[in-house]
Nucleic acid binder design. Sequence first.
DNA 1: ATGACTGAGCATCTCAGA
Length: 256
Amino acid sequence: MKLATWNVNSVRQRETHIRDWLERVRPDVLFLQEIKCEAPAFPALTFQAAGYAAEIVGQKSYNGVAVLARVPFTVTHRALPGLPAEDAQARYIEIETGGVTLIGIYLPNGNSGAEAGYAYKLAWMDALRARAAALIEADRPFAILGDFNVCPTDEDFAKGALPAGDALVRPETRSRYRSLLWLGLTDAIRALHPSGPVWTFWDYQAGAWPRDQGLRIDHALLSPALAERLIAAAPDREERGRAQPSDHVPVVVELA
DNA sequence: ATGACTGAGCATCTCAGA
């Protein structure tokens, strides 16, 4: 089973990139983040022509997530359970396929909106931990893939790529990420690449890509049963070198 | 010479991204 996640920074700007990538890599399931549109504007027919069905949790201008799959699946949640009902940000989709639960997330960045914006990020992470804990308790095989907006350790960002105190590296952010791992989840990339830079994002500014000044913020966390099946996990750096790329590249995970 | 990004939208500027 081949799973993938990709923050595309506008699905309409990246329609051709995504279609070409699907045809080259042929993942079973691809989660998208920052589609930046509502469902009627989503180019579903393009991906359908490549053999992929789409489910969309859209929002105008900002955020927005979706899933593309060439295997049968059912959507089970379109919002993160446990958040206040008035929360309307499109950041979560959960599906079931082949006896496993797969979750695609776009975790809040936390640098905008001052203290309230950062508090929202932490509340979101607390709710995500509760959801993961419930699935662990139910002994359900599951994976969480997406843009976590977390650099888990100092090895996960290039020196100078982030200001001190950034929401991606604050201790409160990292402690919540660690609390996910301590439920028994496996960070798929670090399980296979234990140290050193494994960037998934390069800023558009200041020559971050040519200087290889990146971040590792797109992750795949595996429940114990799925971690036993881990074969490969890596970002697809090649995509960042294309014309008009997203600032994130796809992360691909292969399970036996 | 003294710069240097991208996308969406009630748009020619603001917000958000990270």
